[in-house]
Amino acid sequence: MKNALTKRLSGIVCLLTVAALFSFIGYQMGVAHMLNTIMHTAHDLLLNTVFYLMGICVLTGAIGKLFVEFGVVDLLEMLLRPLMRPLFNLPGVASLGAVMTFLSDNPAIISLSKDKRFSSYFKKYQYISLTNFGTAFGMGLIVIVFMVGQGFFVEPMVGLFAAGCGCVVSTRCMQYFVIKAYPSYAVENANGNGEEQEEQEIQHPEEKSVFLRTLNALLDGGKAGVDVGMAIIPGVLIISTLVMVLTFGPGSNGTYTGAAYEGIDLLPTLANKLDWLFGALFGFTDPHQVAFPITALGAVGAALSLVPNFLAHGWIDGNAIAVFTAIGMCWSGFLSTHTAMLDSLGYRELTGKAIFSHTIGGLTAAFMAHVTMLLIGFI
């Protein structure tokens, strides 16, 4: 009886919230124009943004798989290993997780952590912090390639560096919170067997023909890229459409026509109230820019879809691209993945601490990107 009442109350709250939101938008735009704008925006995003992102996903997926097949990932893991302990307080093998998530997406760190040999290198508090560590590099290659495709190069590299800084903050914050809540996790081994195996190079089975290995790697990686491209469709169409309606204003003549990318200009109006804060911390020069980090909380693919329109309107500059790259990589839709990731590790109760830590990490990444761009400007 109690559960039934709770469901009814939640249903009423949900219905009232949705009705209030669309009533507010429809009151300003007109119901017919609002519906037309939503459908036209979603359709345009599907054709001109999703398929473009899917193309990037396919190509980067193929490259990533090729790197795995021919040992480039192992080489990168070996080069990055010395940085793991001093920066992230993680064993050297964790660098493999950073490379894998950079080439694919956040959940890659979870599939890797399920390997008993991999997890044997970690204490429990380190093992749990892999959620934050891996998320900070999720879809990194896709984000950087996308930004380079928009005509920028130095700025995405600055963003990559800043995302690494945010990752350090997020990972170490999470480790601090875990040890504070569960002191025994500081000494307990992640796999519970009390043994830590000697780190070894990850071995990959090799086929005799280099041609077949190359062909299979490219095709398998491209297929995985299609899966990633399909996975970003809901986020782009749902989240980006809503954010754009809340970000853009009326048509060029000041009236609503039901065309794509019209809206009620709510987010920039609210951002104007804190313009001094966003300008000081992140160097934002236009209130519309705040829409990117808000969208990146749920889906970085959806956030990327904002960039072409922002560029077309002249709302963003090189500093914004660096900040977007940093916060897009570091957050990479963590609100929609952290719960599932920690649940799969068996530590769902620590989700709140992980989200709080990663929020701090993403803001740090954005701030570091802005500061680095200022330093580059002085040089």
Rank of each mutant, 00 (worst) to 15 (best):
A217Y: 02
A303M: 05
P234Q: 14
N309T: 01
L274S: 12
K223A: 15
A303F: 07
G138R: 03
F133D: 03
F334Q: 02
P287Q: 05
R81W: 05
M174Y: 03
T325F: 05
G164D: 13
F356G: 05
L277G: 09
F122M: 04
G55T: 07
R213L: 04
G333V: 05
K273Y: 15
F24C: 03
S104K: 11
N189G: 11
G134E: 08
S129R: 04
H40S: 08
H313I: 00
Y261E: 04
T337W: 00
G258N: 04
K123I: 08
I360D: 04
A365Y: 03
I110Y: 07
G333C: 05
V245F: 00
I294C: 05
L212V: 11
F278D: 03
D74R: 10
Q175P: 05
Q126C: 09
H313R: 11
R348P: 06
G64E: 08
L267V: 10
I294H: 01
L237S: 08
Y176H: 11
D317R: 05
V178D: 03
V187L: 14
Y127S: 11
G229C: 05
S113H: 06
Q197M: 14
S332P: 01
T247W: 05
K223R: 14
I294T: 02
M368A: 15
L277T: 12
C167I: 13
T135P: 08
K116C: 05
T6D: 11
I321K: 04
